[in-house]
């Protein structure tokens, strides 16, 4: 009998592995892989559903149109601004929240339960809450302001409210990811630090922070990618009015409002490239480990 490079058992294991993964892989391929490819193809075509006969391959014309459009750059700027500001606030608030969840002496279960409400609540629902709260007359928050102001109708305050809604909803998620990091910091290290004479703040900065750096990077990566796709909050709060469109809102309007598949696809591809760039920077430059995604 000749020796076999792969025995039955090994071959069976491989086959089983493939069979078990096949359904999930197939669904992901059909529903995500193929549309991605398709949108790349569409982005090189003139394809407007209002003029379906006027379909043609036009190379990079769509890209040129989008990249020279001030609407696109305005949306891109708004999206980036919202992403950076809200993630920065979330990081600070999330860290405080994580420490409270980790350290609190009383009602730990209660705290961990209530923070899941913002996480779990439907974004659109929360957004309506904020919209009515800031609507003059109706809103309890708007009533705290000068009577003549309508914060959602002015660009700076509208963007601030969008950021508020975003921060309120996603800080708990950030906090949970950071909490995961905090729980693996050995208690002994902190005790050793305090015996070595470090204050609480010093041991947080010098010991805890460096140790949870991986968790911070992961949390930042997830949240930045997520914030860059911001859609629901803006749709409800301003629907892109007062120049508050995000790239997702703009793309959606080109598709459903404008029925322009070529331009919509081009924007889709550009958003995807931006997201890929962010992920690339985090993973390759900052050395973020790529763990199980949770969002």
């Amino acid at each position: 009998m000749s020796a076999r490079p792969i025995s039955d058992g090994k071959a069976a294991e491989r086959r089983l592995g493939w069979w078990l993964c096949a359904p999930a892989a197939l669904v992901m391929l059909i529903v995500a892989g193929w549309p991605i490819l398709y949108s790349v193809l569409l982005s090189f075509q003139r394809f407007d559903l209002r003029f379906p006969d006027d379909k043609a391959w036009i190379g990079f014309d769509n890209y040129q149109a989008v990249l020279s459009s001030e609407y696109w750059w305005n949306a891109f700027g708004v999206t980036t601004f919202i992403m950076i500001v809200s993630v920065a606030i979330e990081l600070v608030l999330g860290m405080i929240l994580a420490i409270i969840m980790h350290r609190t002496l009383v009602g730990r279960g209660l705290v961990r339960t209530v923070v899941l409400i913002p996480y779990g609540i439907v974004t659109v629902v929360a957004a309506y809450g904020w919209r009515y709260a800031w609507t003059p007359g109706t809103g309890w928050l708007a009533n705290l302001l000068d009577e003549s102001t309508a914060p959602l109708t002015e660009r700076p305050s509208a963007i601030a409210i969008i950021i508020l809604a975003e921060v309120w909803k996603t800080t708990p998620f950030m906090a949970l990811l950071l909490l995961a990091g905090l729980t693996v910091v050995p208690e002994e290290l902190l005790r050793a630090a305090s015996i070595d004479g470090a204050s609480k703040w010093q041991s947080f900065v010098r010991i805890t922070l460096p140790l949870i750096r991986p968790a911070i990077l992961v949390a930042l990566l997830f949240r930045m990618l997520d914030a860059f796709r911001i859609y629901d909050n803006i749709y409800v709060l301003t629907n892109g009015g007062q120049d508050t469109s995000s790239v997702s809102i703009l793309t959606y309007h080109n598709l459903i409002g404008g029925l322009n598949l070529g331009i919509g696809s081009t924007m889709s591809v550009l958003i995807f490239l931006t997201v890929a760039l962010i992920a690339f920077i985090f993973i390759k430059v900052l050395g973020t480990s790529t763990p199980g995604s949770d969002k």
Binding site: A3, S7, K10
Partner: peptide
């Protein structure tokens, strides 16, 4: 897996 050689239980080859 056995890479090479033969394992017999009561005289029967059981490698596979």
């Amino acid at each position: 897996d056995i890479s090479d050689g033969e394992l017999r239980i009561d005289g029967d080859r059981v490698n596979e």
